[in-house]
Simulated scan of single mutants.
Amino acid sequence: MNNAEFINKAKYIVAKYTNENILKPEQGLISENEVFVAWYAKVLQNHKALLATLIEGDQHYYEVTYNGDKKQLYLDVYNKQENKCFEVEN
């Protein structure tokens, strides 16, 4: 699987999961175009990406991993629990 194929599959999986598990029927459905990649890496035959949606108020981020040895794709869904600010002195 090349980089573009992985990114397309990852966006599709996140959109599908969001439509089926996060959105309420009155909110409508999202497409892959409303999913963005925040971070991506490829090591050997494995891929990993962190993604999010453009849905206002969506507190989830999604981690999609492709295991090239087993030809399996995994989805992990995380919720933002807290946001803290720490002052850093130079």
Rank of each mutant, 00 (worst) to 15 (best):
Y61W: 10
F86A: 07
V64E: 03
F36R: 10
N46T: 04
E20K: 14
S31H: 02
A4G: 01
A38I: 03
T53C: 08
E82Q: 15
C85T: 12
A49S: 15
D76F: 11
V35C: 07
V35G: 04
G68S: 10
E89P: 00
I55L: 13
K11L: 10
Y17I: 01
N67T: 03
T18S: 08
L50F: 10
W39Q: 13
Y62R: 05
H47S: 07
L75F: 07
Y78E: 07
A52V: 05
Q72W: 04
N67H: 09
A4L: 11
L51A: 03
F86H: 12
E87A: 12
I13E: 14
N33Q: 13
Y61T: 10
I55E: 02
Y40L: 12
V77Q: 07
Y78C: 08
N2W: 04
E5T: 14
P25Y: 06
V88Q: 12
N8Y: 05
N46S: 11
N21I: 00
F36L: 09
L44T: 09
Q72K: 15
G68H: 10
E5I: 09
N90K: 15
Q45S: 14
F86W: 04
L75C: 08
A41Y: 08
F6Q: 08
I22L: 12
E63K: 12
Q81A: 11
N21G: 01
E89R: 14
A49M: 08
A15P: 00
K42W: 00
N90Q: 11
Y61M: 09
V64G: 05
E5A: 15
D76P: 00
